[in-house]
Amino acid sequence: MPTLEGMVPFRARGFAPRDIPAASVGTLIGLLALWQAAASFGWISTAFTSDPFSIGRALWILARSGQLWVNLWASLQRLAIGWVVGTVAGLALGLVVGLFTVARSPGMAVVSALFPVPKIALVPLFIIWFGIGEGSKVATLAFGVFFPTVINVVAGIDGVPRSLIRMGQAFNMSWRSIVLKIVLPGALPVILSGFRITTSTAIILLVAAEMIGAEKGIGAFVLEAGNLYDIDNLLAGLVLLSVIGLVVSWVLGRLERALLAWR
């Protein structure tokens, strides 16, 4: 039998990851510095890529000429309208499917059948239906946002503990009050985390739709820069998309902190 002697070792280290905001910023700055150094010292060929200073200069020129704002505004409008339309429609159908037996099976059958269809493949169809203008682009985004929103709303409603709903019924709360005061707040964490997925999906579809048929917008700008072999502007467009993603993520984070302070 082994002899046991000495201090009991602490064994509960790890499995508790935490955010260090300075590390996030430091990592991004470090990567940019490394990239700049690699380009400046000739470790990477600038014929096929660019460097942060050149991209910054391209962004500055685009901002000064007004081209950046025109393209950014066009994209942000499409993103906002498409996301809001898809989200509102998804919330509405998700609530109906999540709350009513009569809608659940038919609703989920339709959602399950259409959700896996790659939305980019629908862009040509939407161009035929809605024309080459804004309609087809907004429809592509809305369609892509709609299905994951429905699925998240239903999952959120299903995840509300039945005991809380029973409590509401035991206190004779009205159906409307149970939905507004118990079901929706209970489903909110899942719905909000779904927003992170749908905003990312919307940005991907925005670029795809703009590449297929648009004169303005970051997607169209990136495609044009690629065709002209203008790598500085191409990467400047990608930086803009990344910034949009970061801003959206920050806004959603603030929204979660404001609405889910109880967690």
């Binding site: 005991s163 809380l164 409590m167 035991a170 004779n172 118990i182 209970g186 109880w262």
Partner: peptide
């Protein structure tokens, strides 16, 4: 205000209130 009222095993409180 509510003739038959419950006290539940798990209290069933709304965590967001």
């Amino acid at each position: 205000l509510n003739p038959i009222t419950y006290v539940f095993q798990d209290a069933s409180l709304l965590p967001w209130r």
